[in-house]
Design a protein around this nucleic acid. Structure first.
Length: 466
DNA sequence: TGAAATGTTGGGGCG
DNA sequence: ACGCCCCAACATTTC
């Protein structure tokens, strides 16, 4: 064909892009298109911060396209309508896109494919969800056998290089990437494919060696920090998996090897939750486990707000929520701790937490976010047993031993000693005065007693599973 | 990818 | 020397 459209959705990159490669294979001219879908832009689940990250990513993609002789066409409207218009404007004979797995995206694409020549390629995950089935043909719901099957599949093809030159059509109108009225410039996660490549290289060249031991430490930069880039496809999952694979082969000792394998395992969890959402889309609405769909959650706006604002009185929980609010990202260990606190200590419906995380995380992905929340709630596939209740004090002591994470995000506690940093309410009043942190005044008294809350949630869940 | 409760062991103090 | 108790340290079970 002469002309094709590359419909960009969650693949804001030129390298290792199967949709772009397929389009270039079929057509002389490939028009890169991003559709600003009002359904998504105006969704209450999208924060200004995530939009800012997306828009920055689009601007940078446009720059890369310009340097290759092309440009990004941004149009606003209902995707099917916009693509219709563009097909007649450009006389394009095909639309190429990377298949998405969320219920909204699949429904949208199903409508488009009825009317337009849409060809979907894999790419959002390392292995496509429909390739990872039990021998019987049914989907997995337990991680370990899923992971075994994942490993048994041949590794996907090597990452494709970015095309060097692209051609476009003259006079195509682009709406342009919108400017947000006011967005707090996110310096922690600069958008873009180039940034993602730098981070991947830096991580897999060195930090990955310590990943297995450091990844849970909230006070260290032990994680890859790649999730926002994977979320928007500024980095391809395949390339990440290959990088893990190569780091494993090049590892100089068993510790480094373990680091690479642990990180690859996290990428497999990502594939796992994508497959779960693909095969069980109802998990966005309700618990995977039917017996846990009727937990009598507490209606506690005050408690929820304290959680949101990082004012629960539990230092690690508050540090984590403030990190999320300030940066659009939260350490993975902290996600489990804050989720456990909302669900098990406050006994608030996990879907309220899921929703808040989706609104505020740059990496907010329906599959991984839902999987994580249902895991903590004990309602999901292969989830933590319901009686596994995180103790925020012990988690703090274990994974932020000197309290550096807490002190950074909760400045009221910056002068509290190591001995009390995770239990500031235990400071004698004289010590409180000495460190300038009066509990109940400068920093809240715990809004709930953990020991009581633990008993309460165990009783409620016991009722559910019986 | 927990934590608390309960059980067991073994060293040391002491009568 | 011996038995007893205490309790920390560790192991196992339970939620």
């Amino acid at each position: 064909m002469e002309t094709a459209i590359w419909w960009i959705r969650r693949d804001l990159r030129l390298s290792d892009n199967l949709a772009l490669a397929a389009a270039l294979h079929q057509a002389e001219v490939v028009i890169p298109v991003f559709v600003l879908d009002p359904k998504l832009l105006e969704s209450p689940l999208v924060s200004q911060q995530r939009l800012a990250f997306l828009f920055d990513g689009l601007r940078l993609l446009d720059l890369e396209l310009h340097s290759r002789g092309s440009k990004l066409i941004v149009r606003k409207g209902e995707p099917l309508q916009v693509l219709h218009t563009l097909l007649s404007e450009t006389k394009a004979e095909g639309v190429f896109a990377e298949a998405d797995i969320s219920p909204y995206a699949r429904e949208r694409d199903a409508r488009v494919v009825l009317e337009l020549p849409l060809r979907l390629t894999p790419g959002i995950t390392v292995h496509p969800a429909d390739k990872l089935l039990k021998p019987s043909g049914s989907p997995y719901s337990i991680f370990t056998p899923f992971s075994r099957m994942w490993h048994s599949l041949p590794f996907p093809g090597k990452p494709l290089p970015a095309p060097e030159r692209l051609s476009t059509l003259p006079n195509l109108i682009s709406y342009g990437v919108p400017d947000l009225p006011k967005h707090s410039l996110n310096t922690i996660f600069p958008a873009g494919e180039i940034e993602a490549q730098h981070r991947l290289a830096k991580f897999t060249d060195s930090f990955i060696d310590r990943y297995a031991e450091d990844r849970n430490r909230m006070d260290l930069g032990g994680t890859s920090g790649l999730s926002p880039y994977l979320r928007f496809g500024m980095l391809s999952a395949r390339q990440a998996a290959w990088a893990a694979h190569d780091a494993d082969e090049l590892a100089l000792d068993t510790k480094a090897q373990l680091g690479a394998e642990t990180w690859l395992n996290e990428l497999i969890w990502r594939d796992f939750y994508a497959a779960i959402l693909y095969h069980f889309p109802y998990v966005r609405q309700t618990a995977f486990r039917p017996e846990l769909r009727n937990i009598p959650w507490r209606d506690d706006l005050e408690g929820f707000n304290a959680w949101v604002e990082g004012q629960t009185g539990y230092p690690v929980v508050d540090a984590a929520m403030r990190q999320l609010n300030a940066t659009g990202w939260m350490h993975n260990r902290a996600r489990m701790i804050t989720a456990s606190f909302l669900i098990k200590d406050l006994l608030i419906d996990w879907r309220q937490g899921e929703r808040y995380f989706m609104q505020h995380l740059l990496d907010g992905d329906p599959a991984a976010n839902n999987g994580g929340w249902q895991w903590t709630a004990g309602t999901g596939t292969d989830a933590a047993p319901y009686f596994r209740v995180f103790n925020p004090v012990l988690q703090g002591k274990k994974f932020d031993p000197q309290g550096a994470y807490v002190r950074y995000w909760v400045p009221e506690l910056s002068r509290v000693s190591d001995a009390f940093i995770h239990t500031p309410w235990e400071m004698p009043t004289s010590v409180q005065a000495q460190v300038g942190c009066e509990i109940g005044k400068n920093y809240p008294t715990p809004i709930v007693d953990h020991a009581m809350a633990r008993q309460r949630v165990l009783a409620v869940y016991r009722e559910g599973v019986s």
